[in-house]
Simulated scan of single mutants.
Amino acid sequence: MGISGLLPILKPIQNQKHLSEFAGQTLAVDAYVWLHRGVYACATELAMGKKTTKYVDYAMHRIRLLRHYNIQPYVVFDGGPLPAKVPTEVSRKQRREESLTKGKELVKQKRWKEAREYFVKAVDVGTEMAYQLVKALRAENIPYIVAPYEADAQLAYLERIGLVDGIITEDSDLLVFGCQNVLFKLDAVTSTVTCISKSDFASISTSSGSSISLTSFTPTQFRWMCMLSGCDYLPSIPGIGLKTAYTLLRKYKTVDNVVRAVRLEGKKEVPKGYLEMFKLAEKAFEYQRVWCPIKERLIYLSELAEGEVLDEGVNMYVGG
């Protein structure tokens, strides 16, 4: 989940804070992150079809922890998959089914520990599990919203319009969406989180201990770097990770120039139609459809220019 290797690169600007430092604020919560974490405690029961609500207990314990420190949680759920990500979802479903089959085979052999490892991979956090958490949230009057598509874009929008002050997640994609204050690694024992603020990006440099320098990078170039290294919306160029993407952008400035240079060099295989797919995928980070709780209607994450209309191909990446 997220951009591989991004958090280690941003380590110099990661700050550990106690939840008490966020008293009086509203923090959005990526619901499915907590649900996924919650299933670790009951993966075997879920995989074997036994009833359990341990995943709800996990999430609600953290909701109550936030409220204990006078933080207002605002929980955001994923909605439907973007059409462009359907092949990715199909592939993930196939891997889950394979893991479930393997886990059940190991149970028959009484190899419980190994079976559980496969069951963790097999569990799909679906709408029924989300509904069980919704019922618990309603019972305690916790505000929540179901995104029309992906929670990432919805979380980014809520922060952008000032309804929330920051976002609790484990998904580094939120930084690519341009979120200002992202909180990772909530520790329920110590009541601490690891914070990354977009305003600190400019201080990332080799002298600060990072392997790259974002001092002169624009937000657009940061997004390009992350996308070139591999994201869910388009196929990757084998051999290009974050550091290589950074080096190429520093040298060639634009994605068009980078792709042209990589093709001319001939050492890495660029997927057919990559540049066109890249430009479409970028729209998912810029214009993905979200729900505006103020206007009470679907809107784009960023406003379109006057008279601009997105064609059907783009809608596969932003939602119809």
Rank of each mutant, 00 (worst) to 15 (best):
K267I: 04
T254I: 11
K102T: 12
T220L: 13
G266W: 11
Q132D: 10
L280V: 06
E286L: 15
L155P: 01
K85T: 07
R160Q: 13
L66V: 02
N70D: 14
A245N: 08
P12G: 06
G5D: 03
F177M: 06
G5H: 01
P271K: 06
A59H: 00
R138E: 15
Q221P: 03
Q154A: 03
V120W: 06
T218A: 07
I237R: 07
E21M: 11
E170H: 03
A43C: 08
F184W: 10
P219V: 09
G209F: 08
Y274F: 14
S203C: 05
N15S: 10
C226R: 02
G38D: 00
E265I: 08
A47G: 15
S205H: 03
S99L: 04
L304R: 07
W291P: 01
L301S: 02
A130N: 04
Y131E: 10
G239H: 09
Y149F: 15
D187S: 09
I63W: 00
S91A: 11
P12C: 09
L82G: 04
K279L: 11
V290G: 02
R260W: 11
L249I: 07
A202V: 02
K11Y: 11
I161S: 08
V189I: 14
V255N: 05
S236I: 10
S236R: 14
P143L: 15
D78I: 00
L137A: 00
E308P: 09
W291S: 04
W112A: 10
Y157L: 06
R263T: 15
L242D: 02
V86H: 09
K11H: 13
K198T: 09
I167K: 00
Y246V: 05
S207V: 08
A23E: 08
W112G: 09
C292P: 04
R62V: 00
T169I: 05
H61T: 12
L298A: 12
T52S: 09
L298W: 13
L228V: 07
D232W: 05
E98D: 13
P81R: 06
Y246C: 07
E140C: 10
I9W: 04
L183Y: 05
A136Q: 05
S229A: 15
P8E: 14
V182M: 01
S172E: 08
L301P: 01
Q16F: 14
M316S: 10
A23M: 09
D311Y: 13
W34R: 00
N315K: 15
G162P: 07
K85S: 07
L27R: 00
E306H: 10
N15C: 12
G126V: 06
A43S: 13
C231A: 11
G266A: 08
A153P: 08
Y252D: 04
E128F: 12
S236G: 08
Y300D: 14
Y58R: 00
F184E: 03
G319I: 10
K295I: 03
A28I: 01
K51N: 11
A31S: 01
E296W: 12
Y287N: 10
S216R: 12
I13F: 10
F201L: 09
K251D: 11
V309I: 14
L301Y: 02
F119N: 04
K135C: 12
I161Q: 06
P238Q: 09
K283S: 13
T247A: 14
T52Y: 02
G313F: 15
V86E: 07
K268D: 05
G24K: 03
S191K: 03
R250K: 13
R111H: 10
E159R: 04
K283F: 09
N141G: 08
